[in-house]
Design a protein around this nucleic acid. Structure first.
Lengths: 254, 254
DNA sequence: AATATTCCCGTACATTGTACGGTATGAAGT
DNA sequence: ACTTCATACCGTACAATGTACGGGAATATT
């Protein structure tokens, strides 16, 4: 499987699929046996349970009890299918914006994103430079922007803050997610990997050449029983990022 | 190609490769015609110029003028090869730590990482939950930690700060990198994509349902002539992150 | 009944990582 | 000098991928 990338297909085809009216167009020919929605759901189920690497047109068709090529009647290609999958999970996850200060709202937003990534780990493996601008993603963007509306920031700053939070959460979540993925695909669990790596590391991390790294590496290794703890890293980083944003808001008089 | 993941191979095999003495073990049989270093260099060249999707054992062997399977004499598999590639680029990039305040040093470190990702865009497509702990990566870790040594932080906090910066830069750089990748792989450049998407977006982003998103989306779209500007996002976010870290350092009395 | 249109899908192709086993090479042991 | 045997090299084969192509079957419109 090549790198899975949103926006890799024909944009207007993806957009038509995303916003396409679900009205059953009166037409000749045999009755459709499938729906786009059903295909997308099957694909999401497959990716949730077996990972993005297991997501193939053949496997999706198998789950639906049809031939592989039948899918292409409903969906132009795998690229566009992935676009719709991505938008769909954001649509389902549409959460209420909680009450509270802007900071509490931003924090909740970050935690929602973190939770969504836990539920659908494959979403972080999809490159979204050209996001599928469907109803789910747009609604999410609207919710996010509202948390920083009215703080005295200009539009560009508001957008930048949202981007910052999303970039940061995605980065931190990727680490947590990968730990699960690599265990599934390699069969080597964290403990086994650390057991194989630790002794090598001790031999190689000599305090002469790497005084600080060997000290800190030893401390963190013992503390986490692993090379790092993604959950802790997420919490720590989130507070720093929010602190940084708060400073800007204060300067703008929010 | 399945998702490329570091730590997917046998850890001790990767580590042996990473730290393995380069001394030519006196042995029987024909003279080796290749070296691990040469294979790694060819693989890096290929990935640099054509992307990670184009990195295949066949293509690497072709560049070296040997049969595909000959590579397996030197390298256990593709996983381990990627591990060594990743360590190698960090070893080459080993930069001097500049003088200045800890903040200036951290900022320089982030910019170095950003520049490295520009040079070797494929590095960000590799999942590094279990990083290849070779001489390049370890030396980098040591350099990074030294910038936050002596500020009154404990070891865990020092490690967390480094993780935060690296996570953030990786996240922001991924956006910039993907813009280039998606253009290469799809043949659709940013302007063409935006030309196809913009009109759709205008139709769909109605101010009734999405008042804030439509306003901000329009402003940023006109400002960037695209859906976002990764370079601007990087600069903005970096200052917020550093501000947040500075607050912590101040509280610790640094 | 004829026609136009749509759904379904079998086959085929190029590309991937790498397991397996065979052959050639050249240093060490006799 | 001759045998032994570890090592380098690599052709072939297999299972899996996305999807182009074209044929067959079903059904609403004419």
């Amino acid at each position: 499987m090549a790198t899975v990338r949103s926006g890799g297909g024909d944009p207007s085809r993806s957009l038509a699929l995303l916003w396409g009216s679900d009205q059953p167009t009166r037409a000749r020919g045999p009755k459709p046996g499938l729906t786009v929605r059903g295909i997308v759901r099957a694909a999401i189920d497959l990716a949730d349970s077996e990972g993005l690497d297991a997501l193939s047109m053949r496997r999706v068709a198998e789950r639906l009890g049809v031939g592989t090529m039948s899918l292409y009647t409903y969906v132009p290609g795998k690229s566009e299918l992935v676009d719709v999958m991505l938008d769909a999970i954001h649509l389902e996850a549409a959460a209420e914006v909680p009450d509270g200060t802007w900071r509490q709202q931003l924090e909740a937003m970050a935690r929602d994103q973190w939770a969504l990534a836990r539920e659908h780990p494959w979403m972080l493996h999809i490159a979204t430079t050209r996001p599928p601008l469907g109803p789910g993603i747009i609604a999410k963007y609207e919710r996010e922007l509202r948390t920083v509306e009215g703080l005295g920031l200009d539009d560009i700053e508001m957008d930048s803050i949202i981007t910052l939070i999303n970039d940061y959460v995605a980065g931190a979540a990727r680490s947590a997610i990968n730990a699960v993925d690599v265990e599934r695909s390699s069969g080597v669990d964290e403990a086994a990997w650390w057991a194989a790596t630790g002794p090598w590391l001790a031999k190689v991390l000599d305090p002469e050449h790497y005084p600080v790294a060997s000290r800190v590496g030893t401390t963190t290794g013992q503390h986490y029983q692993a090379v790092a703890d993604p959950d802790h890293a997420f919490e720590f980083g989130l507070q720093r990022v929010l602190d940084g944003i708060e400073l800007l808001v204060q300067r703008r008089g929010g």
